[in-house]
Design a protein around this nucleic acid. Structure first.
Ligand SMILES: [Mn+2]
Ligand SMILES: [Mn+2]
Ligand SMILES: [Mn+2]
Ligand SMILES: [Mn+2]
Lengths: 240, 240
DNA sequence: TCCCTGATTTAGGTATACCTAATATTTAGG
DNA sequence: CCTAAATATTAGGTATACCTAAATCAGGGA
C-alpha cells in the first residue's frame, strides 16, 4: 500500500483520521482531543499531533487545529469523512445482501475497501441495493450529497430500567456497534439485531428479554447483558 | 495507502513487481531484466534494482536475482503473483457480470482492488460467479491451487495473412488485452470480443472481417486494424 | 496563587518506496 | 579485441507515516 498515489485525493491514513474525528466529535459536537484520536486509531499521541499539523497546514485544510485545544473538521474534511462513511456502509450492506457475509465480518472488510473503491463502484452497488438508507448494523448511510440522516436513539447502557415491581417497557433495537466482532456474534446469537423488540425488565440494569413482534412475548427468556454489551446497543422507544 | 500494515503479507508495491515479473517472463519463460520491469511499472530503473535486491535478500525470498542477469520468481513469489492475478480476473468478471461495468473499465478498478480483498471476498465472488475459468477479456483465471490453465493462442500481429488471391481463413478471438481502455473500446465497437469469429482477409496484413457464427458471413464489413490493435488481439484457429 | 499531573508537543529516528545523477558493467559492432 | 551504447547499479535525497523519549503546557486542588 504505497502512500498517496491517488492524485489529488487523500491517503488511507488521512481518511482514517478524518473518520475518527467525525466519530469522536459526534456525541458532543465539539473539538476532539489528540489523546482520544490516538486511542481510537491505535497510534502514539505524537503521531496524531504530527498528522493534525500537516492536515491543518495544507493548502486546502481538512481540519481546523489549535495547539492544545483539539481539532475540528473543516467543511472539506467533513465532506471527505462522510464520503468514506458512505463507502463503508454501502460496502457493508453489499457484502451482507449480495455476498452473504456474516454480520460480524462486515466491518473488517469494509474498513479496508472503503478507501479503494471508485465513485463508479460506489454508484453501482448503491443502485444494485436500491439506494439503501441504513446499513446492516442499523447505521444511517450518508447521502451522495454528504448529508448524514440523524438517528435519535439511546445507548442501552445509559437507560435506567423501570423501578422494581413496575411494568417492563419495550424498545426497538435501533442499531448495534459494528466494531467488536465477538460482541456482535454474541448479540446476534441472542436475537439482538436492528429492528428486534427489546423488553427492559424492571429493577436490574442490563436485564432484558426479546419481545417477539408476531407472537407477543411467548418464549422470551430473560437475557442478562454485560455492561460491555449494553455499550454496543442503541435503542428507541417502540412508539417513535 | 500506508505501506505494509498487512502483517506477514506483501505490500501493494511488492505485489505489482511480482505480477510484472510473471507477465514479462511468460512469453520466453526466462529471466526478466530491470529495464523491462521499469517500463512496465512506470518507475525508474534504479527503483527496480532496489526493490529486487530487497525481495531477493528477504528471509523467504520472493525472487531469485543476480546482478546484471535479471530476475526470476521463486516458487513463493510465483504463488503470490498467481494469487493476485486470480484476484484481478475474478474481480473483473464480478464487475462485468454483477455490477454491469463496461468492458474497458474493468481493468483499472481490478488493478486497485486486487491487493485489498480478503480470501473470503475472493471465495464469495468466485462462488457467486460459479467458479469461472475465464475472465471477460478471455484470460484464464488461475485456480485456487495456483495453477494457471494454459491457453494456446497466437498474437494477431504475428500471424501472416493468407497469400493474395487465396481463400480467407477463419479464427476465433481467444482474448483481448485489458490494459488499453481506448483500444478496447475501439475493438468492442467493431465486435471484436472474445469468442467472436474473425476472418483474415488475404494479402494485406491486419485486414479482417467478422464471420458471424449463425448467419455465415452476411454483412461482414472489412475492418482495417492498426498494428497497435493487432498487438492487443490473440486468436486461435476455428477448429481447435 | 502555585504546583502537580496528565495531555500535548517537539526532537530525533525508522521503514517503505519512490526519485535523479553519477558510476559501473555488459555486450554488440567495427 | 576494443570501445561505445545500452543497461544496470550505487549514492544520496524526498515524502509519508509511524515510533520513543524528552520537553512543555494547561487546569484543578492545596
Ligand atoms: Mn463498519
Ligand atoms: Mn464516493
Ligand atoms: Mn486486468
Ligand atoms: Mn486469494
Amino acid at each position: 500500500m504505497t502512500a498517496g498515489h491517488r492524485p489529488g485525493r487523500s491517503t488511507e491514513s488521512v481518511d482514517n483520521y478524518l473518520k475518527a474525528i467525525l466519530a469522536l466529535s459526534e456525541p458532543h459536537g465539539g473539538r476532539v482531543m489528540s489523546k482520544a484520536l490516538a486511542e481510537r486509531l491505535g497510534v502514539a499521541p505524537a503521531s496524531v499531533t504530527n498528522m493534525l499539523q500537516k492536515l491543518a497546514a495544507a493548502p486546502a485544510p481538512l481540519v481546523e487545529y489549535e495547539r492544545h485545544r483539539g481539532v475540528l473538521l473543516s467543511p472539506a474534511g467533513r465532506r471527505r469523512a462522510l464520503e468514506i462513511v458512505r463507502h463503508h456502509r454501502l460496502i457493508e450492506t453489499f457484502l451482507y445482501e449480495v455476498l452473504d457475509y456474516p454480520l460480524e465480518e462486515l466491518h473488517e472488510e469494509a474498513e479496508r475497501l472503503e478507501h479503494f473503491i471508485s465513485e463508479r463502484f460506489e454508484a453501482r452497488i448503491a443502485a444494485k441495493l436500491g439506494h439503501p438508507r441504513t446499513d446492516p448494523h442499523g447505521h444511517s448511510i450518508p447521502t451522495l450529497e454528504g448529508e448524514m440522516p440523524h438517528r435519535s436513539s439511546l445507548l442501552l447502557a445509559e437507560v435506567t430500567p423501570p423501578p422494581a415491581g413496575s411494568a417492563s417497557c419495550v424498545y426497538v433495537v435501533d442499531s448495534v456497534s459494528d466494531r467488536d466482532a465477538t460482541a456482535l456474534r454474541n448479540l446476534e446469537a441472542n436475537g439482538i439485531t436492528p429492528g428486534a423488540r427489546l423488553r427492559l425488565l424492571p429493577g436490574e440494569r442490563f436485564l432484558v428479554s426479546l419481545a417477539e413482534p408476531a407472537t407477543g412475548d411467548a418464549s422470551a427468556q430473560p437475557i442478562s447483558l454485560t455492561r460491555e454489551d449494553a455499550q454496543e446497543i442503541w435503542i428507541r422507544p417502540l412508539s417513535a
